[in-house]
Every structure is written in C-alpha cells, then in structure tokens.
C-alpha cells in the first residue's frame, strides 16, 4: 500500500511565485528600429523573460530591473515609468 506522506512537495508550475510583472516600476520599451538583434539583453536577463529569438519581453513577468537597458550596446531599450 503506497501512501504519500503530506509534506512540502512541490511540482513545476509557471507563476509559482506569482506574476512578478506586477513588481515593476519601470517598463522596458524597445526601439525596434535601432535594435540589431544582438541578443545581449536576453543573455543578461536574470529572469529569462526576453525571448531569445524574437527578443519580445514578457511583461507579465518582467520585474523591470533594467539590466537589458543598461547592457544594450545600441542603447535602444528605454525604461519608462509605469502608469497605473
């Protein structure tokens, strides 16, 4: 007879820590004209919210840290204050 003990066992599930996009004060806005798709923004995003192919930023989860903006060699990502 197999009985699973009740304890803190967790399974993988997106959003397990909530929708971290709500933490944001500043939102990254990409100037797609200037962007040369180097991918450095995606590489350095701690949260991996930038799609490595399309370089679309997932604003549901982006915490707005601004590393992408700071590291962009083209300086084509601006951090814009969120309006609520």
């Amino acid at each position: 007879m197999s009985r699973m003990p009740k304890m803190t066992i967790s399974v993988p599930h997106e959003a397990a820590a909530g929708l971290t996009g709500t933490w944001r004060t500043f939102r990254p806005v990409v100037d797609r004209e200037t962007c040369n798709h180097c991918g450095i923004c995606a590489m350095f995003c701690p949260d991996a919210v930038i799609d490595p192919d399309t370089l679309e930023i997932d604003l549901v989860y982006c915490k707005g840290c601004g590393i992408c903006s700071n590291e962009c060699p083209k300086k084509c990502i601006k951090m814009v204050r969120e309006e609520h």
Binding site: S2, M4, T8
Partner: peptide, 19 residues
C-alpha cells in the same frame, strides 16, 4: 523499501521549500 516520495529526475519535485 518503496519510498512513495523518493526523488526522481524524470518527475521533478521540490522538497521542503516555502511552506
């Protein structure tokens, strides 16, 4: 021994995180 909650890389689970 048949440990029902044994660790298994093919069925990844987290043990003892925030409770």
């Amino acid at each position: 021994l048949d440990l029902p909650h044994k660790i298994d890389v093919n069925d990844p689970k987290g043990y003892g995180a925030m409770s």
